[in-house]
Computed example of a mutant assay.
Amino acid sequence: MGLFTRFTDIVNANINSMLDKAEQPEKMIRLIIQEMEETLVEVRATAAKNIAEQKTLARKVSASQASVTHWHGKAELALAKDRDDLAKAALAQKHKYIAELEQLEEENKHLSEFLTAVQDDAQKLQSKLNEAKRRQEALLLRQESAEVRLKVREKAAIYNIDEAIGKFERYQQKIDRIEAQVEAFDMTENKDLSAQIADLEQDENIEQELAEMKKQVANG
């Protein structure tokens, strides 16, 4: 495929449409960027080659112009010396270089038009390349976001949130039962203590009553 046929295909390509239809958009965008960069290198190399050729043409044009002026002067000199034959020969040389000059100027005109087109094409291709790279960045961001979301989903599948909450509730209930046992133990312990004190108070009352009875018997 020729350079500019391929270039036209690239510039006219709808990158977004290509990526939307691709099974692997990230791979497709890499290939598109690679193709664009390679084509841009070739376009620039072609431009550099033709710029060098244009400089060579410019030197040839300058030389031909000098030759036209040179032989025109020789023809005038020959006429001044009444040498029509030499003047005629000098004019023939002049016209030879005029024809050469016209051809060179025509070539230079076409080459200038070609270089202008190449410069325009290179700018279009660079614009397309920038667009492709922006799309690549967007795809990378989407890919990173998708990977993060996938990891979250995978974690959720392994550690089910509802199950985790259920486990927490069961653990909390277990703690509640233990705390209830502690409170029950404290209540039982306090009740026993009160009963023991009440017994002591009852014993003391009996001892007092017994002492009173002994005292009455002794006085009787």
Rank of each mutant, 00 (worst) to 15 (best):
T39I: 13
K214I: 06
K27D: 14
A48D: 12
Q173Y: 06
I29Y: 08
D203A: 14
R135T: 11
I15C: 09
E42A: 15
L125T: 01
R83F: 04
E26H: 10
S127N: 12
K27H: 11
L101E: 03
F4C: 07
F7M: 15
F168K: 08
A138Q: 13
M18A: 11
N108I: 02
N160Y: 05
R44N: 15
R30D: 14
I32W: 04
I15W: 08
E137A: 14
L150F: 10
A45C: 00
A52S: 13
Q103Y: 06
A132N: 12
Q196E: 06
L19N: 11
F168D: 07
Q173V: 07
K214T: 05
D84N: 00
K151P: 04
Q119T: 14
L79C: 01
N130R: 07
A184Q: 08
Q126C: 01
M28P: 03
K167A: 10
A92M: 12
A89R: 12
E131R: 08
E183N: 10
K21L: 05
E42C: 04
E204P: 00
K155L: 12
P25D: 10
Q202Y: 10
K151E: 13
L140P: 03
E53M: 05
L40T: 07
D82T: 06
D199W: 01
V152G: 07
E207M: 03
R6V: 09
V217H: 03
E212Q: 10
N160F: 06
A48I: 05
Y97H: 15
G73E: 11
L57Q: 13
L40E: 13
F185P: 00
A218M: 01
L210T: 15
V182I: 14
M18E: 15
A138E: 14
E105C: 07
Q34S: 02
V217W: 03
I161A: 08
K133P: 03
Q136D: 15
K96F: 13
L140S: 10
I165R: 13
E100Y: 04
I29W: 09
V118K: 02
L111W: 00
Q54D: 01
T46N: 02
N108G: 08
F4N: 10
I206P: 05
E113R: 12
S127F: 07
Q24R: 11
S67V: 03
P25A: 10
Q143F: 02
